[in-house]
Write a protein that binds this DNA or RNA. Structure first.
Length: 311
DNA sequence: AACTCTCACAACCGCGCATCA
DNA sequence: CTGATGCGCGGTTGTGAGAGT
């Protein structure tokens, strides 16, 4: 999947990086920093150009760089930002902690662009269908409606309310009761505003501002995958740290305690009032804690961050 | 099994901007 | 002001893996 390593005419190595080269670059930068990319490879003992070193560090070796596994929330944010900013990948990457411009760009070209195109096609079809129905109903009343061979219509009085291309339909909630509570933390998922905590019963939902809203209003806020997609909690008091849950979130009970040194906040979430552990939790933070969990550690504890998670 | 096609993504390349002498 | 240099950005390419035939 990567380019075969080779040496160019200037004696500089190109192509895929070896683990040894990675180690050299990582060790050097961790010790001395990247004071001058052009000079760096010479001192780090690498037969690479500075540009190549910079790219490798920025896109792969740099701490906290996340790879793959884009959450629904991240994808929606990328789509939204791309609408606003266009192909300004570095600006987009700046809004997604742990993601690089290169990776976002790749993800866009390989996944999101297609998704957008599919949604647009779908909307176009749906719009045509709607339009045809409306058109038919108006045909009896008015005679100046026209329809082409493709089913597209043109009519001065037909108004089309186009749905969001990304969130075409809003689901009805399942019959189960869902209750979430946070302390000093914000829950958010596709379409919910970042500062909106959600606590809901089976027929309506209570927002943090105290207002009660019908499911219809909630349905307006969430997209079609809200009830099935991974759920992300973004603790904004400790930026860059994310805790994400997989599709078993809704069925697997769990407890998470998150007491950071710099603020005493506890992040705890209860599923139906039960305070138990989940085997499906992944911590995507600055520390190596995620690896402990990925390795299947039980009672994983992050010492300095005081993060605990029982399995 | 062998071949072809498509996908995914790391890495490269060229350009433009900022800084400095 | 101008040229050299370094860096960052965005577009493109190369290639291994997996799917399809």
């Amino acid at each position: 999947m990567v380019r075969t390593p080779y040496v160019d005419k200037n004696g500089l190595k190109k192509g895929a990086w070896s683990p040894e080269e990675d180690d050299k670059l990582r060790a050097y930068i961790q010790r001395y920093g990247h004071w001058n990319w052009r000079e760096l490879p010479k001192y780090a003992g690498l037969a690479r150009c500075g540009k190549s070193c910079r790219l490798r560090w920025m896109n792969y070796l740099r701490p906290n760089v996340k790879h793959g596994n884009y959450s629904k929330e991240e994808e929606d944010l990328i789509i939204k930002l791309h609408e606003q900013l266009g192909n300004r990948w570095s600006k987009i990457a700046a809004k997604l902690p742990g993601r690089t411009d290169n990776e976002i760009k790749n993800h866009w070209h390989t996944h999101l662009k297609k998704r957008i195109q599919q949604h647009q096609m779908k909307n176009k079809k749906g719009r045509n269908r709607k339009s045809i129905e409306k058109c038919k109903s108006q045909e009896a009343k008015q005679s100046n409606t026209s329809m082409d061979n493709n089913g597209s219509i043109s009519h001065p009085s037909v108004q089309i309310l186009e749905s969001c291309p990304i969130c075409p339909s809003s689901p009805q909630p399942s019959s189960s009761t869902i209750e979430l509570s946070t302390s000093n933390s914000n829950i958010n998922n596709s379409g919910l505003s970042p500062d909106m905590g959600l606590s809901s019963g089976s027929s309506n939902c209570l927002f943090e501002d105290g207002s009660t809203n019908s499911w219809d209003k909630l349905a307006d806020l969430v997209d079609g995958n809200f009830w099935t997609d991974p759920f992300v909690v973004d603790d904004q008091n400790y930026q860059g740290h994310e805790i994400s849950f997989d599709e078993n979130f809704w069925t697997a009970p769990f407890t998470l305690e998150n007491n950071y040194q710099h603020h005493e906040s506890d992040l705890s979430l209860n599923f139906l009032g039960a305070s138990v552990s989940s085997p499906h939790m992944t911590y995507l933070g600055d520390t190596d804690f995620s690896y402990l969990l990925a390795e299947g550690a039980s009672n994983a504890t992050q010492a300095d961050g005081n993060v605990t998670c029982d399995r």
